[in-house]
């Protein structure tokens, strides 16, 4: 049984959906961040899979950019979480609702 690109797409979709569900259902900001990282990774996996499928190394280069941005995002995001924790003493996003209308 040959592993085709569809398998990777399916795997990637499942991982992406799990990440998305994590973002949606968890209240811990750090967990949400982790879920976002999971979603990014699923996308990265798909990029690499298509690079292999199309025999084109450009896809792998794009992954670098994604990783770089993810690294920057995590650094900023975690700093924000620290700041929020300092002011509100919680990282439960259920409690952080200053924009409630």
């Amino acid at each position: 049984m040959q592993v085709t690109i569809e398998w990777y797409i399916a795997l990637s979709t499942i991982l992406f959906t799990i990440g998305a569900l994590g973002v949606l259902v968890r209240r811990n900001a750090i967990i949400i961040f982790m879920s976002v990282e999971l979603m990014l990774n699923s996308a990265n996996l798909l990029l690499v899979a298509f690079a292999q499928q199309l025999a084109d190394a450009h896809g792998q280069v794009l992954v670098f950019f994604v990783m770089t941005v993810a690294a920057a995002e995590v650094a900023i995001g975690l700093a924000l979480i620290v700041v929020i924790f300092r002011t509100k003493n919680t990282i439960d996003i259920g409690e952080i609702n200053l924009l409630k209308g």
């Binding site: 949606l24 259902v25 968890r26 209240r27 811990n28 750090i30 967990i31 961040f33 982790m34 990282e37 990774n41 990783m67 993810a70 690294a71 995590v74 650094a75 975690l78 979480i81 620290v82 924790f85 990282i91 439960d92 259920g94």
Partner: peptide, 26 residues
């Protein structure tokens, strides 16, 4: 990822003492 970023995560988790996170559900 597994090295730098996740270490950062763990570091923050421990720094904030947020191991026992609040409820799973929305």
């Amino acid at each position: 990822y597994a090295g730098a970023i996740m270490v950062l995560f763990l570091f923050v988790i421990m720094l904030l003492g947020a191991e026992e996170s609040s409820g799973v559900l929305g």
